[in-house]
Deep mutational scan, measured.
Amino acid sequence: RELEKFANEFKVRRIKLGYTQTNVGEALAAVHGSEFSQTTICRFENLQLSFKNACKLKAILSKWLEEAE
């Protein structure tokens, strides 16, 4: 439930900031050390990743959002 809420909020905030899914994937290299594909970001936003992978990505995306805003 919390993950679903974060995924929805993330998408809204990403769009408000003017980032595409591809931009986010590339920008994550600075935060995490490796890029993520547009497909991975899309699957996260649509809750199509495994729970374990989504939880890992949530932590990375939270950190990125803090820096982007």
Score class of each variant (00 low, 15 high):
A29Y: 05
L49H: 04
V31G: 08
A68T: 13
R13K: 09
Q21I: 10
E9S: 10
N8Q: 15
A54T: 01
E35R: 10
E67R: 11
T40A: 10
E45G: 00
K56I: 09
Q48W: 01
F44M: 01
Q21L: 11
R13I: 00
A59W: 05
E35A: 12
E67A: 10
V24C: 09
I41T: 01
Q21M: 08
V24S: 04
Y19D: 04
I60D: 09
A29D: 04
E66C: 12
I60M: 10
E66H: 09
L47A: 10
N53D: 15
K58C: 01
F51W: 13
L65M: 08
K58Y: 06
T40Y: 00
F44A: 00
T39D: 15
F51L: 11
L3F: 07
N46R: 09
K52P: 12
T20R: 00
L61N: 02
R14Y: 03
R43M: 15
E35K: 10
F51A: 11
K63E: 14
K63R: 11
E9G: 02
V31T: 13
V12L: 11
E45M: 01
E69P: 07
C55D: 15
A68F: 03
F44Y: 02
A27H: 11
K63V: 11
F44P: 00
W64T: 04
E4H: 05
R1E: 08
F36N: 03
F10W: 00
L57C: 10
S34I: 11
L17I: 04
L49E: 05
V24G: 03
R43C: 06
T20V: 03
R43E: 15
E45W: 03
A7G: 01
V12A: 15
A7E: 10
I15L: 10
S50G: 14
K11D: 00
N23S: 14
L61R: 00
A29N: 05
L65P: 03
A54F: 12
Q21D: 04
E4S: 11
A27F: 07
Y19M: 15
T22M: 14
E67V: 08
K58W: 09
A7K: 00
V12G: 11
L3R: 03
N8T: 13
N53L: 13
K11L: 00
R43S: 08
Y19S: 04
N53P: 12
E66M: 09
G33Y: 00
S37C: 09
E4G: 02
G18C: 04
K11G: 05
R1I: 06
A59L: 12
E45H: 00
T22S: 14
I41C: 07
L49Y: 07
L17W: 05
E2N: 06
F6T: 00
A29Q: 12
A68I: 15
L17Y: 02
K56C: 07
A59M: 12
G33V: 03
E26S: 05
K52G: 11
A54M: 15
E26A: 09
S62K: 09
T22V: 09
E69C: 06
T39R: 12
A30I: 09
